[in-house]
Design a protein around this nucleic acid. Structure first.
Lengths: 218, 218
DNA sequence: CCTACCGATCGGTAGG
DNA sequence: CCTACCGATCGGTAGG
């Protein structure tokens, strides 16, 4: 006997009263909207239970659809995963490149970059990047290549800022390893951060900057 | 149609010639041995494909058993996961506490700790800790509690060394966040490290120590 | 987007 | 530890 992953209902019984969103037919024009809902719901579920631990039925239920209906919007479950990662990376990349564009001094630029990354990594409703980080293995080879291309741009932004920190004498190296250590330390926060914990995102950002660059001089 | 995860064979046909280890009955006395083989094979598979992405049949095949036979050694698949994590943590803890016991100066102690951790995190045949880090979510609540207890001891060792670094003036903080940043940066290496890459474990250890503490003075 | 369904696979078990 | 098997579930599809 397998452990049950979800409540089982008789197939012929319509789910009458439950907390989930409205089932039914989409009104014309809100189709793209529904697609976005699926992506967001899937991101949250993938983050919590992993890609393999989440069923298409879970996703359908979360947006108030019947079990087969997500396939009206996506051809395969894998395509949903790709959409989650692509949309998350695109949004993150936009925020990140905006930080680069704002001509801040190195330390402030680093702080802004860390803060922006913490938001998409840890804040409520931003489940895309954690899924990217922790469900990497579930991507097909072809989809992995697409994601890598986006991720490379992300890394380039960080490498650029690390270089500026080095030039300003705030770091003593700007090697790729330095970037990997900084980003790794931050990305690993997705493992231990609790939204109800002692530190907020602003405090974590400040202390992280201080840790890597040394306390700010005045 | 689902994508096939493995070759399918007619159930009545014995697998005659294949590369995997000998099928057949265990000789008396090597039972504990077989259990260990299962744990090691499972660790490797879990690391590659995740807990949910690995089937008991995969594990059985990897050690040359038929599909139901792992259940002679373990009650459930979950128990295999627990064994992987427990045995990995126990071994890591032993190596780690040995570093603490050897009375090295702070910088050398840190370096030895990093090096020991890199070994169990990245080296061939050490798949336990990566599984622990990346399949956390698949543990039941009760098993998670058991693992947390072991992990706390591990963290305590690192916190102790961070404290010594601070006292020696090599770090300017010994907060828990400092420990989380250092360990996170290192643990995240499991994501990007390639055994055929440019840097070996010794070089990574040296450069990591230099990054966090500043280059060694002479 | 629902209904109704399929083939494949999965974790696990009885009995030897 | 193998043989033979079960019930449940899963991703996906045809047809409306």
């Amino acid at each position: 006997m397998q452990p049950k992953r979800s409540d089982r209902r008789r197939p012929s019984v319509r789910p009458a009263a439950r907390a989930a969103p409205r089932p039914g037919r989409a009104r014309p024009g809100e189709e793209a909207n529904r697609r976005g809902e699926i992506v967001r719901a899937a991101a949250r579920l993938f983050r919590e239970k992993g890609f393999d631990g989440t069923t298409v039925r879970d996703i359908a239920r979360a947006v108030g659809m019947r079990s087969g209906s997500p396939f009206y919007h996506f051809e395969t479950k894998q395509d949903i995963l790709l959409a989650v990662m692509e949309e998350g990376l695109a949004a993150g990349l936009e925020a990140t490149e905006a930080v680069l564009a704002a001509k801040l001094p190195p330390r402030e630029k680093f702080r802004a970059l860390v803060r922006a990354h913490l938001e998409i990594l840890l804040d409520e409703g931003h489940d895309f990047i954690p899924v990217l980080l922790y469900d990497w293995r579930s991507l097909t080879r072809e989809n992995r290549a697409k994601i890598v291309a986006l991720k490379d741009r992300y890394d380039a932004v960080w490498q650029q800022v690390v270089r500026e920190l080095r030039r300003a004498g705030l770091l003593h190296t700007d090697s790729p390893l330095a970037r990997l250590l900084v980003l790794g330390a931050i990305n690993f926060m997705a493992t231990w951060y609790r939204r109800d914990g002692a530190l907020g995102l602003d405090e974590i950002a400040d202390q992280t900057v201080d840790f890597f660059l040394g306390p700010a001089k005045r």
